[in-house]
Design a protein around this nucleic acid. Sequence first.
DNA 1: CCAAAAGTGTTTTTTTTACACCCATGG
DNA 2: CCATGGGTGTAAAAAAAACACTTTTGG
Lengths: 245, 245
Amino acid sequence: MPAQDRTGGYDRHAYEPFAVTVDLAVLTVRDGVLHVLLVERGQEPHIGRWALPGGFLLPHESAETAARRELAEETGLADVAGPHLEQLRTYSDPGRDPRMRVVSVAFTALLPDAPEPRGGGDAAQARWLPYGAPGPLAFDHDRILADAHDRVGAQLEYRSVATAFCPPEFTLGELQQVYETVWDTALDRPNFRRKVLATHGFVEPVPGAARLTGGRGKPAALYRAGTATTLHPPLLRPSREGRPA
Amino acid sequence: MPAQDRTGGYDRHAYEPFAVTVDLAVLTVRDGVLHVLLVERGQEPHIGRWALPGGFLLPHESAETAARRELAEETGLADVAGPHLEQLRTYSDPGRDPRMRVVSVAFTALLPDAPEPRGGGDAAQARWLPYGAPGPLAFDHDRILADAHDRVGAQLEYRSVATAFCPPEFTLGELQQVYETVWDTALDRPNFRRKVLATHGFVEPVPGAARLTGGRGKPAALYRAGTATTLHPPLLRPSREGRPA
DNA sequence: CCAAAAGTGTTTTTTTTACACCCATGG
DNA sequence: CCATGGGTGTAAAAAAAACACTTTTGG
């Protein structure tokens, strides 16, 4: 809620000030492996550990604006439309930063392929690392990253976010690889194709265009992201009911 | 992210302080109508308008703790387990409060039936109002409330949140009414019943218990919320493809 | 006996799955 | 001509939808 009190007048001392930051879980799929953009910490606490990129909100920025700015600084991307960026949740446990009270708004960003980040300025150099590879991250970033992965996995079912992992023009094989990578499941190609094409507004064909993938095989038709944001019907993840633990 | 900088040392002036609050979208279903818990504002800005309940974070509180405390204060409930409470998203546009910079973490709370709120202390009296009935709310609360409604509607499909609208023991008819109210759609009773019972962990029967609903008709068997948090398979909302706008 | 609400059964339709098969390309 | 990846067809199985019908209660 905006500033408000229940005792009558407006009281400037009714609140405590907090530092507000954004954290970014930036994901991409590279050769069938999920990668995360991480920064190595240069000072205590957690010096030498990997951390999610992020930074403070400037006085007149919304969290969304700050997240997009940080993303541009960290990756060196000057994208016009910009990558897919979405709020994940806010982490506010006292003690999540030992130095001070910090409330952090976490975002998930999805990027096509993996342009190696060019340090865009004063920012510490960020690097793509395979998801799960770097040991424990700094602060509560393991938790944030796990939440981001869960959320993206769930969103693939009913939102058209998978195309955010793909370049502007992509093949259905590439789209399928996104699903298989994030879900860590193999999918039946004919059935995947049919579902995607039946889900209207998900993808639209680029007439006549085709591209060879992997150097061999029949060139694949190209598609662009459609206008839909939600998938009707959804593309449900295969159930893992009778599966070995 | 926790406090961090890119320029070397730790700089206490690298950030601006913000006021951090929580806002609550508290929902219940009463007689087949969705109701929201609202507070009438007693001072400027937006004096006399309805607003979502909420308040400031205390220095050593997480947003979740603050939300639960505010909910208890506002409703007078002293629930042990407490109602279903879940983070919605964070609203941080500069200018959302004309007086100062306020970042607000919004929550959705779901309650069974509608205990009329008893003012639990110094809090302004809160009231249940039908969803959509009160004109424009204060600040950006219309947006927050709409987001909450969207989210809950979507969650009914793949999460077991519907039981949070029901008392500890409920009939399948009551559960169905939750779906019908939030989705604003009629559902086929036999099919609904089958789906709910097939979704394992959603509900479990209370052996031998039954209750008369509406004074007439066959007494309905009672159920409790199951242990599942996600629904397998999901209970998909009927598609509105060929529907009149 | 009637109305109302719960609960069961069954047929039809649609969707999903599994898998066989054909196509186009590079080496 | 074979390996590789793209693309189509189809029959069997499963799931969803539609709707008739039975049960149990209060009046």
